[in-house]
Design a protein around this nucleic acid. Sequence first.
DNA 1: TTCATAGTTCGACCATAGCCGAAGCATTCG
DNA 2: CGAATGCTTCGGCTATGGTCGAACTATGAA
Lengths: 227, 227
Amino acid sequence: MKEGPDISHIAALIGDPARANILTALMDGRALTASELAEEAGVALSTASGHLSKLSDADLLHPRKQGRHKYFQLADAQVAGVLEALMGLAARRGATRVRTGPKDAQMQVARVCYNHLAGQKGVQMYRSMLGRGLLLETGEDVDLTEQGRVFVSDFGIDIKELQGGRARLCRTCLDWSERRNHLAGSLGRALLSRMEHLAWVRRDPSSRAVLITSVGQTAFESAFPVD
Amino acid sequence: MKEGPDISHIAALIGDPARANILTALMDGRALTASELAEEAGVALSTASGHLSKLSDADLLHPRKQGRHKYFQLADAQVAGVLEALMGLAARRGATRVRTGPKDAQMQVARVCYNHLAGQKGVQMYRSMLGRGLLLETGEDVDLTEQGRVFVSDFGIDIKELQGGRARLCRTCLDWSERRNHLAGSLGRALLSRMEHLAWVRRDPSSRAVLITSVGQTAFESAFPVD
DNA sequence: TTCATAGTTCGACCATAGCCGAAGCATTCG
DNA sequence: CGAATGCTTCGGCTATGGTCGAACTATGAA
């Protein structure tokens, strides 16, 4: 006896029905707010808040505050893997998910966030760059790899000039419709600007929507493919 | 809400410290008795018995009665996989294990159980045959594959003759020192008898120990290799 | 500034379930 | 046939922890 007690500790965290609902709701990698998770779990907000603290303390969740919201995400792929394995054992399906997002279809596809690209296309670009080794994700923040610098230069962007300013080159921003990261920072701004210049995209003057041209459609997909 | 509650149910089972101790003690695939598991978990036998029922009801454990003992084993590799994944997350080590087995070293290596081979060598033979597709394991019981029939015939055993008798051709028997299965049944008996005839082994007349000859040592390893 | 929304903390309540010892079966051994 | 061992069931105790509403803090909007 006196063994490592931690497997039981973690399993006990997952073992509460409310917490299990929270975790399964986050299984697809999105980030949800405390209120949404409370509803998902079927408990009061105060109760959910307690659960979310425990899950975060145990490093199963990764919380971030954005404005007056607090978004929660699974801490990493390993956590998702454990949940996956448990689901395999449980062999049950039918978790209902919250479908959340903006009403306007076009805004959901692509829009401007401050001055960089957001929406499905923004997330796609981020994930593509990450998956192909152009970006390095380190906890909260993100950076360009050497390979990424080459790619960006080839794209027609002068990195040295960007780094001159006070703004951070790369930053992550949580996409509020996709609930995933996309790229912000001066590089994010430069990429959108460059795509406008190449006539890949056109900004709708009356909204934040970004329209993708037919030439841009093809070019974007080949520049930022996702598996 | 109203989601599949089962991931929480299973996780809650693993989440109790006593049950987690029981499960980790079984992680290496051995089978242990209720009493041993009670000690391992650090609880009274009555308490452990309740835990073991719950784990068995949820199909995490596979119980078998043998004589007046009741042996418990992890239900399958998937269960072990989930525990493994949880341990990876918990990143803790140091579970102490019960070291159990007969005192006599030679008996532990190889001995006769009824009329078939038991001990390390018996388990090795069983696992080798299973791993190489000669044996088919189906729940409680076991059977020869077509490939296995060829192998056994080549070994000099007349299968048709064995099948004539009332006894079952293949049966599993739980090895009390290794706590794993080995092969019993008329085939198990025939294999031991054949190995005696080939002078691979010699039975100690004063005990149940089986002595392996030097020629047998080599031959056995090449006939029943394990990775 | 004032109001509304999002989240946290606190206090009180209460049910679940883990725990043990004692008694009851079942199986083997002498 | 007892006697001993291994396990299960039962009853009663206790504590852990999940739950909510209400009060409080922080951020953003009007």
